[in-house]
Design a protein around this nucleic acid. Structure first.
Lengths: 154, 154
DNA sequence: TATTGTTATACTCTATAACTATA
DNA sequence: TATAGTTATAGAGTATAACAATA
């Protein structure tokens, strides 16, 4: 069903940047502590993977190690993340959220979800259910092989 | 159904950045003529609205006029866009795609759709149909009142 | 005076290349 | 030699403020 896959791709290409723009602008607004989307994603990853290394986070967020090193430096200065040398392999660093980091991650998440929820309230319950299903499918299609190894064939 | 709207927002917040990353990386790859996502969106808008002013494009893409002015300067230098003073109101500029601009817009669109299609091929036809429906709903929820039609003409 | 666009300036984000420390 | 991370440097991309031209 090649036509359908193409149509689907076109729709995704048109709509995803639109939604992304809303997410970014909310994330950077002053209603919520100011975080860029990659910063938010890095904090969220650390929330789920306590003690991850710099490379782990870089790979998940999709940045090069130097860029991530710089981002982490900023997060450490802002007291959102603790960076420690790993005892077992002194080349590695171990990253964890501070209490403040956890709290700010949570606020940013809440604020953004609230804003999206407001927009989604214009839709019907059935449409929202469809969106949930679609997001789950897209997650399987686009998740990196490492983090969520589902049925992605090559 | 507040819970559902919240769940829906959470899913969107997790998955949309993931898909966006794939779109961006394809857009900037060398398979397709290198364009940033905002550049692509500006060209696509000009494809649909020939002779639009700088402010029109800035508003659609979501940039300030100075930023758009700079972007347009780059597109003019790359021979993708023509910038002319409007005869009726000499403060305005009239922007149009060059033949090269049209062709590069089309290549970028094709290349990105092909890449997305490849990823979506891992899903079932039913799942793709669900995604199409979800995208249509999201478009309604997030499109600016002014320009509901964000599509590319194919 | 108000509007349209540009210039000047500064800051964030990202990359590549070269380096340090450790294994 | 290979790996993990950092530093140095450069280039987009974006914003705000100030300006010029036109209405």
């Amino acid at each position: 069903m090649q036509t359908m896959a193409d149509e689907c791709a076109c729709e995704v290409l048109e709509v995803v940047p639109l939604v992304m723009r809303a997410i970014r602008s909310e994330m950077r607004s002053h209603r919520t502590p100011e975080l860029s989307v990659p910063q938010f994603r890095a904090l969220a990853f650390l929330g789920r993977h306590e003690g991850a290394s710099l490379s782990d986070v870089a790979e998940h967020v999709g940045l090069t190690p130097p860029s991530m090193s710089k981002m982490v430096e900023g997060l450490v200065v802002r007291d959102l993340v603790v960076r420690q040398v790993s005892p077992s392999d002194r080349r590695r660093v171990t990253l964890t959220l501070t209490a403040r980091g956890k709290s700010i991650l949570e606020s940013a998440h809440q604020g953004t979800v609230a804003h999206l929820t407001e927009k989604l309230a214009a839709l019907s319950p059935e449409e929202r259910a469809t969106i949930v299903q679609a997001m789950q499918a897209l997650r399987r299609a686009f998740a990196s092989a490492k983090e969520a190894n589902t049925g992605i064939v090559r």
